[in-house]
Design a protein around this nucleic acid. Structure first.
Lengths: 222, 222
DNA sequence: GTCTATACGGCGATAGAC
DNA sequence: GTCTATCGCCGTATAGAC
């Protein structure tokens, strides 16, 4: 058995780590995000994974299944944290900075994921359903409806206190997500308009991390 | 001459209006938004325009030039109004509802434009530059930099008054645009999560038209 | 200007050796 | 499991008649 492990094949110069299936997934992840599903080429994925094109079909049968697998991975990671935090029992003053910080961290590491997900969603309506039950699975069964009603309950209570202005959970969440995700989805545009390079954009996001929670909570103040 | 007008050719059953070039542009507009640039097929555009495939090449040489023309049209229309309003001399309390209202109107009529534009921007970095000088051309030469500095000046003045909290023009505009555009870019997702049909989404946007200006201006209050 | 017909290449997918 | 070789379609682009 030790012999089997030692007998690993030689690999393409670039990515000698992990088994083939994993390397294919990682390569597909990169290429689908770079080119979009329609623009991606099986050959480019194979090259980037350091394997032959035929092997992609061995593991994933055809391009559409591979694309679906990647979409699930990426979309799940982008929208997972929202539900998680929204369901917690922390006060709004804790939740909002927490979500903002977590999102900006995560998206800084994968800045092109939002653009990819939104693009796919537009061209493949069926992915909508696919995404929401991917989310439900991640949360161990918390449906979007449950998340929204839990949040609405918390908001109503604060309204009754007189400590925030009335707002629906739908509008609350939409606003919060918009403010976090859109700047990444529109990153190339913002960089162009504000004349930012890579470092400038990072600085802009850092400023946002400080400014956004205050902006958002302020908007709720009665 | 009257004879020439009367001698119009018979056309495909569906779109008998306008000259061929215009019909091709309109068809391309629809198809590129539906499928994305990479997913769009010249044949589908030709069918939708009621002309032959070869005619597309007669007018636009190749697919990439047609795609560029459409991108410019759509992207320009999505982002044009911002600069226009930001440059005006109205008070913030006028500008914000005005931008929100105008955007929500326009996007309600073309709800898939934002998703298309963001998707293209991600896959074709060169389109970033293309877009910003398309915008400059529309404004008759008002560069993004000019728009931002004009807005910053207005904000600084209000800060000095003590009538709003300090905020940079970049963050101000990013927030405003995010809140207006993102819900459309993510329309399929929001409809899924909130269990909305077409009418439900329209109602959601109508609610937003009322709620958003107040939310935004409230956030600026000192 | 608009059509029909066709050339050409690229890409997804499979067959089959190792 | 992984590779080489190849098939067959589909999509862009062009040639040329009308």
């Amino acid at each position: 058995m030790a012999r089997k492990v030692a007998a690993k094949k030689k690999r393409a110069a670039s990515p000698p780590d992990g088994d083939a299936e994993q390397r294919i997934l990682d390569a597909a992840h990169a290429v689908f995000i770079r080119r979009g599903t329609a623009g991606a080429r099986m050959q480019e994925i194979a090259d980037e994974a350091g394997v032959n094109k035929a092997l992609l079909h061995y593991y994933f049968r055809d391009k559409s299944r591979l694309a679906a697998a990647i979409f699930q991975r990426v979309a799940g990671s982008v929208f997972a944290r929202i539900a998680e935090v929204a369901l917690s029992d922390a006060a709004l003053e804790e939740k909002v900075p927490h979500i903002v910080g977590a999102y900006l961290d995560q998206l800084s590491r994968a800045p092109y994921a939002p653009g990819y997900v939104l693009g796919e969603l537009n061209h493949h309506p069926e992915r909508g359903k696919q995404l929401i039950d991917a989310l439900a699975r991640r949360q161990g069964g918390a449906t979007p409806r449950a998340v929204l009603s839990r949040l609405q309950q918390q908001l109503d209570q604060r309204v009754a206190n007189g400590t925030i202005k009335p707002i629906s959970a739908q509008q609350f969440l939409t606003n919060l997500i918009s403010l976090c995700i859109f700047p990444f989805a529109a990153k190339p545009l913002l960089c162009g308009v504000m004349e930012l390079d890579e470092a400038g954009f990072a600085a802009f996001i850092e400023e946002r991390r400080r400014v956004l929670p205050e902006f958002f909570l302020n908007a709720l103040r009665p």
